[in-house]
Every structure is written in C-alpha cells, then in structure tokens.
Nucleic acid binder design. Structure first.
Length: 788
DNA sequence: ATAGGGTTAG
C-alpha cells in the first residue's frame, strides 16, 4: 500500500471559504466557481480526513466510511465522463489514494471480511480498473465467507465487461446460489457473442424469472436476427405474469418489425396502451415511428413524430428515414438540415439511402459533407460509402476511405472489410482485395463470399472455385455466387453442375439461384431442365415472383417454346419493363415480328417505360420483317424517349437499311457514327452488299472493317462471298488466300444438344462427333422410313 | 435489458 497524501501542508480550517478550497493541485489554478455540484461531497470528505477524528476503528464506523467512499466513487465515475473536458475530474486525481488508505486501514483492523466493506472495496477497485486488486478483494471475500450474491453478480459482470467470457462462465458455474441477475448477465453476454445455443440452454434451465431476464432473451434473439424466436419468450413472460416494461416493449416491437409480424405488433401496442407503458417514453415513440414506417404507413409514422412532446436525435433520424423510405431524398435532406442536432447515424442513414437508390455520386458528396460537419464515420457509414465507390469503380475514393477506416481502427470489422473486398474487386484490383482478406484475424462467410464473387466478377473462375472449395462454411449465398458467376461468365454447363451440387448439399434454392439457373437453361436451350426448374418454382410457391416469371418466360422463348413463354407472360400478376422487354425480344427473335411490334405498342399504352433493350428488340423485329419505315420511326421514338442509341442500335438500323437494299443510306448512317461503332455494323453492310451485288460499297466496307480489326475472320469471309456473288471469282479466291496468309481461319459454327446431362457438340466439318458414323447410319434409316 | 443506419448473390 502506498502512503496516502491526505494532509496538505497547511490544513484549512472549516469555514465558508474552505468549501471552495481546491481539492488537488491540478485544480488550484482553475477559476474559483465550480460548474458541477458533484465535487462538493468529495471536498467534504477530504475535509473530514484532514481535520476530523482518526479513521474508524470499528466495523460500524468503517462501514460508514467505506460506504461514503463508494458513493464518492460513483460520483467520480459520473465525473470521469466529463474528464476529457475537465482533467481535474479524472478519477485518478484524488479518489484512489482515499480508497487505498481505506483498504489499508480495514486490513489493519481486520475488517476486510465485513460484507459491506468487502463489496465496497470491490466496486471501488473495479471503478479504478485495478483488476488485480479487485480480484484480490474478491478472493478475500470468498475466503472470509463474506461473498454475497451481489458480490458474485458483480464479478460475473466485471468479467463480461472485460470480454472474458470464460472467466465469467467459470465463476457463474461456481456460484453457490445462482441469482437471476447473473443468469441475465450470462444470457446477455452469450447472445452478444452470438452463442445463441448456449444462451437458450441457460434460459431453459433457469428456475427464476425477472423482467430483465426475459427482456435480455428477447433482445438477444433480435440481435441475432432470430426475430421469430423472441415471441415464445414474450408469451412465456406473460403466462408467468411478469409484467413487461418499456424496454421489453421496445425489444418486442423490434422483433415484430424484423419478423414482419405487423398484426402482432399492433396487438403489442394495444397491450402497451392498456398497461400505460408508453406515455412519455421517447424510446418507445421512436421505435413506433420505425414500426409504422416498416408497415408502410408513413403518415402514421409522421403523426407519432408530430405528437411527441420531446424529441431527440433518434426521433429526427427516424423521421429522416420516413422521407427516404418514401423515395423523397430531397425531403430527407431537408429533415437533416432542420434537425436541431445531427450525428453520424443521421448522416449515415441519408448516405445509405442515396447509395441504395443508386445515387452513388451524391452519397460520396454527402460523406465529405459529413466529415466537414465534424461527424466521425462509423461502421455502417463506411460500408455504404465503400459500396458506392464499388459501383462507381472509384478506386481513388475507395482507397481514401480505406485509409480513413484504418485510421479509425475499423478496417478489420467484418462489415467494412467485406465492402473493401468488394470495392477493390469491382475496381479490378483483386490483389488488394486478397490482401484485405488475408489480413483479417477472423473471417466470416460473407468475407469469403465477397472475395469469391469478386474473382468471378473479374472472370477468374479458377480462383473463385479454389476459394469455394477451401471455405470452412458455405451458405446459400456462396452457392448462388458460384452459380451466377458461371452463368455470368457464360459457362452455363458449369452453372447447372453447381446447381445439382447445391441441391445435393441440402441447400434450398431461392429466387436468385433459380433465375441464374434459368438463364443457363435459356442459353443452353435446355428445355427439359428449364421445365424441371419451372416445376421447382411452382413447388416453392414463388411462381408469382416477378423475377421468376420474367426468367421463365425468357427461358421458354430462348428455347423456342413460344406457347409456354406466352402463357407464363400473360399469367403473371405483376410485370415490369424487363418482363415486357423479354417477351418483345422473345417474339422478335423467334420470327413473330408483327406480334412483337403489337406487344410493344401494348406496352407503351400500358404506360410501361421502354429501355434501350426494348428498342433493340423492336428494331430487330423490324429488320427481320424488312419494315424500314417502322424501324426509322422507332429509331426516332427512342431518341424522343431520351435514350441515346448505342452501337447495337446503329448496327440494327444499318442492318434494316442494308437488308432492304438501301445500301447508300446504310453507308451514310455508318459514316456518321462510325467512331462509336463496333465492327459488326460494317460486317452487316458488307453482307448486304453481297446480297445486292454492290461491289463499290462492299469494297469500302471491307477496307473499313480491315482497318478496325485486322484479325476479323468474318470480314474476309464476307468480302470473299461478296466477290463471289458479283461473279468476281478471282477476287473471291484471292481474298481467301489472303486470309490464310494472315493465318486466320473461320471459326467453326456448331450446334449442340443435351443428352442425359451430357452435352454433345456437332461441327460442320472438323472434329467429328465420336459417334458420327453411327449417327449418320441411323439418320439414313430414318430418312428411308420417311420416304417410303 | 433499450430506440435510428450497414456487407456478399440477380
């Protein structure tokens, strides 16, 4: 024990001025008026030590001292909250010596075993974060059989606060009589660590009840996103006639919101009204705002806000979210400006909403404004703003935010690092992403998924597959990532193989899985598999889902089963512009050009906004019917809709004109926009030149094509064809030789079919199918059957 | 024991 400096050189006499005497050297230079009444008891106590009778010599006296000391300590703790602005309030500035002195005295007097003294010493040392002294005091207590239930409860919560759940657990199981307080502490700690199973086990074994205990379970389930599990606890609480309080109510409402159980929520609110629970609680009102918002009743949410007598930042932020949820980001911004005080959550909400709505640039701008406003970004904010950088592929911005996160110590947070991995991958920096991933001390499935998805986004399926095989635990997102990754990289067969593996692993496919699988089916023209997926969708009861319907209708159209495609389309209860576009396109590509055009007109009449893909489909339809006038009309309509034509649209228009024989017009259009076009437009013109035997334009087109792309085999073939069609056999032959000289070969076209899960490809000349001899024999037999 | 915001798949 250290010697305690309790006496100052010149002990002040008790007099009115002395009440204002400085209590420690650090405060001596401070202005005499003290802003807080908190220091007064400490001064009084110091005076008592300085001038009063010697310290207590009996347990009773000592109890008075130690209790005084404990209450002083509570004051110190309250003041230490303001100790950053006022250093003299820091707990070390005078109280600790008092405690040490009291402890020494108690030790000398053999009073450490007094229950009250022991527990006050314990709390005192805990307040000064002197863990070793605290633990010694606890051991003294136990040895002297002076440990009360409170002592144990306190120590359990001390260990929990220090994050030492193992010690807390050991202590808890060693408790002679477990109190409901310790049960509550343990359950809460376990829930916060995500050990839901352990928490539930304790809950089921606990013979005692209290509001806090039940509430801790409810909030624990909510924290772990197991909203539905919270309801039985609430029900049990009511059957045990434990009255819910305000905190319970808040947690239960949150559970209802999370589970989407709004009827139940209204029942709970009714109950709360009956119990008079939410009269003047700001917190309950705040949670009501969010409840009504999630119910889709923005007006009611607003009313709750308006009716509140006192509002805080949370109320205002919830209101901001009401506006944002209605899509009124401008209104949300106005709320932010009108708020009496903003914090990082208010800014973060607005930023997240802009990011979600796709206004990523504005999200980044708001982020800078937030920093300028003096708010420190938190985990959520980093996540959304990094996500914005990912969509913008803004590597510089993303790196800067990475630096900010590093500085704030948030870079190893799993939410932030998942976003970082995603951001670096979207910016084509897989190495950095991998580095972020490697630097993580602990990884969760989301990080793994992010990196896998990042590699597949960059077309690196080998790496993606390697990670997928290595990861310790997979969820359905992991499977979806692989399946859609293969579908995106046009490896449709692999996508289907992963789908089979997913089913075998016992994961239930969801909308996302099935839409990728349908995309694969559509591209493989695998009608059989597509029908199976359709059946699966009906079985899962999600056939009315707009994504499912669109993907199904598209799959049938691409597989050539237009009847089924139409049936799905017309039975859909809800359609969006993508649904309509897919159908228009399906009809166009299958040669139902008139029907495609009339469906497009229906679409416009129904007020569905066409997009660039819709127009591409309709131009395609026109080109196949030779409807030049119509095509020009739609081409102009498109621009009137504010959709700038892209190279594919020009290609299509050139194709329309060229097919109809308007070769000079086609060439003129091409020359006008040539720089933005890809080579296919020139190929298309060249091809038409061979049909219409136009040698002059054809040669110009071929020249242009050659300039743009030296290795384009199609160009040589087309040119050669054109010469052939004009009867210029010599030129045709020379072109072929030229092509071979450039060591180019025409890519072989092929067709394929699926048989018992295996794909068989058929080429026009090379690489004969291994069974081609047999196949042709059968074919001959069939032909014979048919003709006789 | 507590209200407001967040990451990966289409």
């Amino acid at each position: 024990m250290r010697a305690v400096r309790t006496r100052r050189p010149r002990p002040p006499r008790p007099s009115p001025e002395l009440a204002k005497a400085p209590i420690s050297p650090t405060t001596r230079s401070k202005p005499e008026e003290d802003p807080s009444p908190l220091t007064l008891p400490i001064k009084a106590f110091k005076l008592r030590l300085a001038n009063g009778p010697p310290l207590a010599s009996t347990a009773k006296d000592f109890k008075t001292y130690s209790e005084t000391c404990a209450s002083l300590l509570r004051l110190c703790r309250a003041m230490s909250a303001t100790s950053t602005t006022m250093p003299s309030y820091a707990p070390s500035s005078g109280c600790l010596p008092l405690v040490l002195s009291l402890h020494a005295h108690a030790f000398r007097s053999g009073l450490t075993a007094d229950r009250s003294v022991a527990s006050n010493l314990l709390t005192a040392y805990a307040a000064f974060t002197r863990a070793a002294d605290r633990d010694q005091a606890f051991r003294d207590c136990v040895a002297a059989d002076a440990a009360s239930s409170f002592t144990y409860d306190f120590m359990v919560s001390e260990h929990v606060k220090a994050g030492d759940i193992a010690s807390a657990r050991r202590l808890f199981y060693g408790m002679p009589e477990k109190s409901v307080v310790s049960y509550t502490t343990m359950v809460d700690a376990l829930m916060k660590r995500g050990s839901v199973r352990d928490a539930v086990e304790l809950y089921e074994r606990c013979p005692l009840h209290s509001v806090a205990f039940f509430t801790a379970m409810i909030s624990g389930f909510v924290r772990n996103e197991l909203h539905k599990d919270a309801f039985p606890v609430f029900r049990k609480m009511l059957t045990c006639s434990v009255r819910p309080n305000v905190v319970t109510l808040i947690c239960v409402i949150k559970a209802c919101v999370g589970a989407g159980e709004f009827d139940l929520a209204m029942g709970v609110v009714g109950l709360a009204v009956k119990c008079n629970l939410f009269e003047k609680s700001i917190e309950v009102h705040n949670s009501l705002i969010t409840l009504y918002l999630r119910m889709g009743d923005a007006a009611a949410a607003h009313r709750v806000f308006d009716d509140m007598e006192v509002r805080d930042v949370v109320s205002w932020t919830a209101l901001l979210d009401v506006y944002a949820d209605l899509g009124d980001l401008y209104g949300a911004r106005r709320v932010l400006d009108a708020m009496p005080a903003r914090n990082e959550v208010s800014w973060g909400t607005l930023i997240a909403r802009h990011e979600q709505k796709g206004d990523t640039a504005e999200a980044l701008k708001l982020y800078s404004q937030m920093l300028a406003d003096g708010c420190r970004p938190n985990i959520s904010c980093f996540s959304s703003v990094l996500s914005a950088c990912a969509t913008l592929q803004d590597l510089r911005g993303g790196t800067r935010i990475h630096a900010n996160a590093l500085k704030m110590g948030s870079s190893t947070n799993l939410f932030v690092s998942s976003s970082l991995i995603d951001m670096y991958c979207k910016c084509k920096q897989c190495t950095y992403a991998q580095r972020v991933f490697n630097s993580l001390p602990e990884k969760n499935t989301v990080c793994w998924n992010s990196l896998i998805s990042g590699y597949s986004w960059n077309g690196k399926m080998v790496e993606a597959e390697g990670l997928f095989n290595k990861m310790p635990a997979r969820n359905s997102v992991s499977w979806n990532t692989m399946i859609s990754g293969y579908a995106e990289n046009r490896r449709f067969g692999d996508a289907l193989n992963y789908f089979y593996a997913m089913l075998a692993s016992g994961h239930i496919p969801g909308e996302i899985t099935l839409s990728s699988v349908l995309l694969a089916c559509a591209n493989l023209c695998s009608l059989e598999m597509g029908r199976m997926v359709h059946a699966e969708i009906v079985k899962l009861g999600i056939e009315d889902n707009i994504f499912m319907g669109t993907a199904l209708s598209d799959m049938y159209a691409k597989s050539g089963d237009l009847d089924s495609s139409r049936r799905v389309f017309y039975q859909m209860p809800e359609k969006n512009n993508i649904t309509w576009t897919a159908m228009v396109q399906g009809l166009a590509e299958n040669g139902f050009a008139e029907e495609s055009i009339s469906l497009f007109e229906d679409m416009i009449e129904n007020g569905i906004a066409p997009n660039e893909h819709t127009f591409l489909a309709i131009l395609f339809a026109c080109s196949h019917c030779g409807l030049v006038e119509q095509a020009i009309h739609y081409f102009e309509t498109m621009q009137a809709h504010g959709i700038p034509p892209k190279s594919k649209h020009y290609t299509c228009m050139v194709d329309v004109l060229a097919r109809a024989g308007c070769l000079p017009e086609a060439e003129e259009l091409l020359m006008k926009v040539s720089s933005e076009l890809d080579t296919s437009s020139w190929s298309s013109l060249l091809s038409a030149c061979s049909t219409y035997r136009n040698k002059e334009i054809g040669e110009r087109a071929a020249k242009k094509l050659h300039e743009l792309e030296k290795d384009n085999t199609a160009g040589y073939v087309l040119l050669s064809n054109m010469y052939a069609s004009c009867g210029k056999w010599k030129d045709a032959a020379e072109t072929r030789i030229l092509m071979q000289g450039a060591s180019l070969k025409k890519d072989a076209g092929c067709s394929w079919l699926q048989l018992r899960g295996q794909y068989h490809a058929f080429f026009s000349w090379k690489e004969k199918h291994p069974l081609s001899l047999e196949i042709y024999e059968i074919l001959d037999l069939l032909m014979l059957e048919l003709t006789t």
